[in-house]
Every structure is written in structure tokens, then in C-alpha cells.
Amino acid sequence: MTCRVIVLHSAFGLTDGVQEFAGLLRAEGCTVQVPDFYDGLTFETVTQGVAHRDEVGYRELYARVADLPVDGAALVGFSLGASFAQRLCRPGVRLVSLVAALDPLPPDKLWCGVDVQLHQLAEDPWVDDEDVPAFRAAVAAAGAMFDHFVTPGAGHLFTEPSQPEYDRDLTELTVDRIVAAL
């Protein structure tokens, strides 16, 4: 299989967990790009990572990835990176896979016509379940597929080994789901 994937990290930064996830995609035959828009900084807590995001500014951080060549690539974003993946999406992207985050679309914004996956724990404090139906409808209206994978449990970044909600099996299943969609 030939696939190109761009992995966008969370507010924790480009952690070992993100690198491990990218390694799992590489083991499936994907070419993986993992931009570091935190310039080497990583954080152990959400509070620290979000404080850095706010200090630098969302717009500045997004500007660091805004010019990535995304045509033909799948975009996989973790939390903050999921927000960036949604913004980077345009026709020509193969898939947008959002892990532990979903930004609601403004009512006047149309989806770009690319298939979407949302992967989350059932009790994720950073995913507002009320936003999912409208986003699903926008994706469907654009003629694309929306797959919502909800796993029982509480927590946010189940792919991040440094976090208590880390789940290796679920992380591998998420990779399998992404690869299957490609």
C-alpha cells in the first residue's frame, strides 16, 4: 500500500507517543511526515501544553503548518492537531482523521468533501458530543463519509503513553482504522 500521512501533534508537543503512532503507520507501509510546530518543546500536562499554545498563539502555531503540501495526503491530528487538520483540509486530501477533538463548523461553512474519522473515548472532556451531529451532517452534505469511533472510558489522549488513559490496543486499532480508510 502506498499512502502519505501528515501527523499533527497535540498541545503536549511532538512527544514519544506521537512518534510511536507515526511509527505504527510507517510499519503499515505509509510515508509519514510529523511537523513539529512547537519547535522541540514537549509538555507533561494538558495545563502546561495549553499554556504554551496560548502564549505562542493559535494563529501563529497554525501558520507554522499552513503551507504543508497536503494534496494526496491523509491528515491525522491529535487534539490541537485535529483542529489544524480540519483547517488544512481541502479537496485532494485523502482523509481527515481526528483523534480526541472536533471543532464545530460555523453554520455558513461547507465541508470540503473529504472523508472524516473521529476517534474518541466516550467521556472525553475536550469533545462536545453536541457538535458531532452537525459536523456529520456537513460531511454527508458534501458527499463524504463520517465514521465516529467511540470507545468506553474517560480521558483525552488515549494514544499518549504518558497519560493515564493510554490504551495500546486502542491506539493500534485506531491505526488500523486509518489504514483501512486509505
Rank of each mutant, 00 (worst) to 15 (best):
142 A>N: 02
129 D>C: 06
126 W>E: 14
146 F>V: 04
135 F>V: 14
131 D>N: 13
109 K>R: 14
120 Q>N: 06
140 A>G: 08
117 Q>F: 01
127 V>H: 05
125 P>S: 13
113 G>L: 06
147 D>I: 09
137 A>R: 10
114 V>G: 05
111 W>K: 02
123 E>H: 13
125 P>N: 10
123 E>C: 11
130 E>K: 14
140 A>T: 12
139 V>L: 10
111 W>S: 00
124 D>G: 03
126 W>V: 15
146 F>S: 03
130 E>Q: 14
136 R>W: 07
146 F>K: 01
109 K>Y: 00
129 D>S: 12
109 K>W: 01
138 A>H: 05
139 V>G: 12
148 H>R: 02
144 A>E: 01
141 A>I: 00
113 G>E: 06
115 D>R: 02
126 W>D: 13
111 W>F: 00
127 V>R: 04
137 A>C: 01
137 A>Q: 13
116 V>E: 04
127 V>K: 06
136 R>V: 13
116 V>Y: 11
132 V>Y: 02
133 P>C: 03
112 C>F: 00
126 W>A: 11
121 L>C: 10
132 V>S: 07
121 L>D: 05
121 L>W: 08
143 G>D: 10
146 F>P: 01
148 H>L: 12
124 D>C: 13
113 G>M: 07
110 L>C: 03
139 V>Q: 12
130 E>Y: 01
131 D>G: 00
148 H>N: 08
125 P>Y: 12
145 M>W: 05
124 D>F: 03
136 R>P: 01
140 A>F: 06
130 E>W: 02
128 D>R: 13
109 K>F: 00
136 R>Y: 06
111 W>E: 02
114 V>M: 07
115 D>I: 03
138 A>G: 04
111 W>N: 01
123 E>T: 09
131 D>I: 00
115 D>C: 06
119 H>I: 06
111 W>L: 03
140 A>C: 01
110 L>A: 13
134 A>T: 11
126 W>N: 14
120 Q>C: 14
133 P>F: 07
132 V>W: 03
124 D>W: 04
127 V>Q: 07
125 P>W: 13
125 P>D: 15
